[in-house]
Nucleic acid binder design. Sequence first.
DNA 1: TCTGGGGTCCTAGGACCC
DNA 2: TCTGGGGTCCTAGGACCC
Length: 429
Amino acid sequence: VSFEPRPPEPILHVDMDAFYAAVEVRRDPSLAGRPVLVGGRGGRGVVASASYEARAFGVRSAMPMAQALRRCPGAVVVAPDFRAYADVSAQLRAVLLDTTPLVEPLALDEAFLDVAGAVRLLGPPGRIGESIRRRIADELGLTASVGVAPNKFVAKVASTKAKPDGLLHVPAERVRAFLGALPVADLWGVGPATARRLQRAGLCTVAEVAALDERVLQALLGARAGSALARLAVGRDDRPVTPAAEAKGMSAEETFEADLTDREVLRRELLRLAERVAPRLRAAGLAGRTVTLKVRYSSFRTISRSRTIALPIADATSLHREAAALLDAVEVSGGIRLVGVGVTNLVPVAAASQMDLLHDDRWGRLERAADAVRSRFGGRAVTRGGLLDALAPQRSGDAAPVPEQWRRPVQTPGPPAAAPEEANPQANP
DNA sequence: TCTGGGGTCCTAGGACCC
DNA sequence: TCTGGGGTCCTAGGACCC
C-alpha cells in the first residue's frame, strides 16, 4: 500500500459560466456574441441567467425582466428550458464523476470535488481542474470556471473570482491575503441583510471582519452566524465534501399573471401544484408528513401555514386536501400573487410502508398507475377532469379546446368507487 | 415597468414529556 | 401556592443560495 500525502489544496469548485444562457447559445449559434436573457417573458418575470454580453449592461440574475430590458433593450429573451439544462447537468456530472466519486452537486451547474484521492493518478489538483475545464469545453461545448483551494468555502469564492472561463488556485498560505482584500458581501453566505449589518458596524472588507473578536461578531449576528463568519473570514472551513444528500423537502409554487381573489380558483391552483409535487415525491421514493401552504399577497407580504399529519403521504389528492384546508384559514380578499405547496418531514417510502406508516389509500394506487401511464405515453396522457380548464391550447399547442360538456367545477372528489388495477407498463392499456 | 422558482439552514416561542 | 431542567416536536418567518 502506497500512501499519498493529502495535497494542501485538494478541494475543487466547478461552476459553469452563465449556464442557462450558454446552453441557449449553444443550441442557437446565431445568439453567439449577443446579449441573451433567460427568464420569464411575462410581466412578472425575472432574469434567471444573463450572458456576459448582457451583464456588460448591468443586467444581473434575479433582476426583473422589464428592468433588464430597460438597461439592455437589444437583448434576446429566451424562455427557460429546465429539461435541457438538466440534461447538460447530467453530462457535467458524468465528467466530474470520471475524476472522483467525491462529487457534491450544489446546483445544476456547480459542484464541489475532493480530489485528494485522485492526485496519484491524475496529477496535482490544479492540473485536474484544468483537465476538467478542457473536457467540459470539448465534450459539452461550454465553459466552466474552477476554484482550487484548501476547503470548500475558499474554493467557492475562488471560482467566482476566476469567472468567466478561468481557474484560480489559492494556496493555503495565500488564503488570508486572498480573502482579506474582498468586500464582505463577496463571501458565500453573506447576503444583503448581513452585509448591511456589517456595514453599519463599519466593516467593509473581510480583513476587517477577520481582525474582530468572535464575540463581537456573535453580538452582531447571533451566536451561530457570528462564529461561522469568524471562521470563514480567516479561511477556516472543515466541512467535508459529501455526495448525494437525501432531499429534505419538495415544493412547487406559481406567481400569477394577475392577482387572484377567488377561493375556488385558488383551490384549483393548489391542486395543479400538488399534482406537480406528488409525482416527484413518488419518483424519489419519498413521502412526507408536513404540508406547507405558501401565500404571497399583492403587497408582497408572504406567509406560510403548515400542518403535520401522522401518516406520510405522497399522493396529490391528500396533498391538495391538506393545502386546501390550510387555505381555508387564510385571508384572500386582498389579492394573491403567488401560492405554493410544499412537503417536508420526508421519509423513504420503503421504510414508511415497512412500518405500515404510509397512508396508501386507493388514491395513492390510482396516482401510481397514472405515473406508469405517463412514463410510457407522455406527461399529458392522463389528467384530472378538474384540471381540464388548465389545458388551454396556449400552454404547448397540443391540446384542442376543451369541450364545454367536459368542464367541471373544481371539487375534491371522494375515493374512486373501485380500486383501480395496478398499471402494468407492459400491458396495452 | 418592482420583485421567479426550487431549495437549505437557522431562530424563536410554545406544547409536551420526563 | 410562585414555578427546575432537558429534550423533542411543531409552527412561522427570515436569510441565503443558484
